[in-house]
Design a protein around this nucleic acid. Structure first.
Lengths: 418, 418
DNA sequence: AACACTTATTTCAAGTGTTAATTTAACGTG
DNA sequence: CACGTTAAATTAACACTTGAAATAAGTGTT
């Protein structure tokens, strides 16, 4: 129940340094004076913090701007090239590894097919190979990589050791961190891929500036990433956000999770296609990808008929599901993403919004805007790469890996008597 | 997006003082040495903080305990009589005002009937009168009251000014804080009554020690109080937790909110009784309170028949609703409270839990225990009274009202040249 | 070209806080 | 009654923020 953590004088500086860095990262460039105004820190402190950051290379000057007759502002910004970060997407069909600079500009990428399923050792091996490959391609030393973010599907439990439960991969309590640790010294940040995409959308997509939002991800299955107070909510064992398996119709359709009436059984791409086939008593053509089939369904629905009915019902269910999120979380924004979400949303967003309005209470609904995601469906690796960046910003730029060989807890000053 | 707040050296002390105080409040008594171990603070800091707290009277010694041969531990605890707090419950039928000491021992109480509805001015007047009355009864000076917590039904928006939207009272954007401010100088903490009860249950009831929990409140209507990271989650405009109006059956029963398929339309006491009458094609007897009627229904169901069926269905819906909370929030505990919740739960908890297991994913369900509330249905005033206590603990015991006449921002030292 | 004016940044003393080491206090034991 | 042990208080060293004063770097004016 103890709410705060004890803190020391050094935490103070770390915290204030972090405040300045976040400000510069998201709303940079800015002058020292502007930073002082925006952060509430005194001019002196901002000067101190900034001079540390400049000395370590994290922040650089970026020209200057005239003031109203006085000394001009010196603009400061985060040095995007200071270090790099790596994002990994362990997907259904392949492992993607991408290298970014701090501003999330892609520097190199590589991807490996996963033809023979998700054998853990094989995946681990591909990740490690990918890390080496992207560094080599971009000519970046591993010493200059802040860390590696890894997005996997399934529940990622952050205990004493990070453990992955991935039903879709057939992974059961896989100690992914330990396995990777054998092959690399880089800091690792493992998380659920949907949560990673949600964070990407919050940082660089439709969620910018929001502190409370839900990013809804609709693909073949359905998930959500819940952002409260500006950061991803995980719950007690990191499995929060299983929106796809919330019940919206007690006693309704059977879901692949075994329960009845799950939202996923109505609005997941697989379920939508199934429902369409049932409605027209047809059979789904083999060999057509879900993406193509759903796109075709949307086209067919333009001419009304069964297809339109199925999609209308889908919009109703999706709206009800979104309304539940609005009623429970009272967010500023709901962002609809995932490949199927973007596809459905591009045509149905007004209907979905109307259904949400019908099912949500007026007051919270009025506070929420429902929007489409802006980053496309392939932002998992990028989202994963934000994890080391987040860590870097939060520690106030102190976690520079070149400092890693220093003595822990004594980093900084040495007291030589000579 | 800036995550932390800037902080000064003084915030440091306030924070560490708060850490010590919370520890003592919830797990006291303890010795300085023990505090140092539990909080991670150095012995010196704990000594400093404690000596301040003792000097101001917030903390007192509570005997001593032998050590293994050396100087004995001096036990410390929060001085329950240091100040008092007031909790107000603006309920459907009456305004309850209760005075507590810091350990939440009831010192005095008074209650006023609200026969003629919820006229704002009348309610405000009763609250102010109640404050004076309980202070007089217990012989406590208003100067020794830390603050007043007020629980009202409806959405309480915490903006520049606290505004209450209470549909059930017919209140629309009532500036309750401003109205009360005209009659008292005491610090006011206004919040939703369900959230207050949830906090009471977390502090002193079935939620002790949990950091992530949901307190579900079933009365005539249905609500929930969501606790994340140890504190009540409010969302962007404080209306989070409207669990009663989440959809569990798209296209289902009409709810009094206007939508269809709300959980409240199945498991709220009013709805349960309605469903029973419909099932047996009877009419509800006039003049019998909902409480009595529901208790009778539970008794009738012991002999099976329609009553048992209706209650079985109720358990299924309630279980599904709880499963939704488990899937979305991944809490450590779900606490079922409210008068109808306690009544239903006392007989149906196993069935409800089974239904939740069926509708929730295995992994998060295994992490959650579902329990009945322990404080009874009348803990709103007490919960409201925790609000000033929470503020007091969080500010590290600095907000002593006797200091209120000091110069703001300069409290503490005076620099006299004499 | 010199000067006044304006505004941004740096410098510095003052005040506070934490830590780690040291000292003092309180107790049981032989 | 000295001695060892453990708890609490004290102290010295150091770090950090603040706010005021000083300095730097421009513009506009005469």
């Amino acid at each position: 129940m103890v709410p705060h953590q004890r803190s020391t004088v050094r935490d103070l500086r770390r915290g204030n340094s972090a405040v300045v860095l976040w400000q510069l990262y998201f709303d940079g460039p800015a002058s020292r004076q502007e930073l002082s105004r925006l952060t509430g820190l005194s001019a002196g402190t901002v000067g101190n913090v900034v001079s540390d950051l400049i000395a370590s290379g994290v922040v650089i000057t970026a020209g200057s701007m005239d003031s109203d007759g006085g000394r001009p502002h010196v603009l400061l910004r985060v040095n995007a090239g200071y270090r790099s970060v790596i994002g990994v997407d362990v997907g259904e069909t392949c492992v993607r590894v991408e290298l970014f600079d701090l501003a999330m500009t892609l520097l190199a990428k590589v991807s490996y097919e996963l033809a023979d399923g998700h054998d853990v050792e094989f995946v681990v091996d591909r990740i490690l190979a990918g890390i080496k490959a992207v560094c080599a391609e971009a000519g970046v030393s591993e010493r200059d990589v802040l860390g590696v973010g890894i997005g996997v599907s399934g529940v990622v439990e952050h205990g004493a050791e990070v453990v992955v439960h991935g039903q879709t991969f057939g992974w059961d309590a896989v100690p992914l961190e330990r396995l990777l640790r054998a092959g690399t010294d880089l800091p690792l940040h493992i998380d659920n891929g949907a949560k990673n995409m949600g964070q990407a959308e919050m940082w660089f997509g439709a969620g910018r500036g929001c502190r409370h939002a839900v990013v809804v991800l609709i693909g073949s299955g359905v998930g959500a990433s819940i952002i409260t107070h500006g950061s991803t909510y995980r719950g007690v064992t990191s499995s929060a956000g299983e929106w796809g398996h919330t019940t919206v119709h007690v006693g309704g359709r059977r879901c692949r999770c075994g329960a009845r009436g799950c939202l996923e059984a109505y609005v997941g791409a697989e379920a939508v296609l199934e429902r369409y086939q049932e409605a027209r008593r047809g059979r789904r053509r083999r060999g057509v990808s879900e993406e193509a089939a759903l796109a075709e369904l949307l086209d067919t629905a333009e001419r009304g008929g069964v297809a339109a009915e199925v999609l209308g019902e889908t919009a109703t269910y999706l709206g009800a599901g979104i309304a539940n999120l609005i009623n429970l979380f009272n967010p500023e924004r709901i962002i609809v993403g995932g490949w199927a979400g973007l596809l459905l949303g591009s045509r149905l967003l007004p209907k979905i919004t109307a259904a949400a309005a019908e099912h949500a209470l007026d007051h919270p609904f009025a506070q929420t805007s429902i929007e489409l995601g802006r980053l496309g469906p392939d932002a998992v690796a990028m989202g994963a790469a934000t994890l080391p960046v987040e860590h870097f910003l939060t520690t106030g730029g102190a976690s520079a890996p070149s400092d890693r060989d220093r003595i822990p807890h004594r980093a900084g000053k040495r007291h030589d008597s000579a």
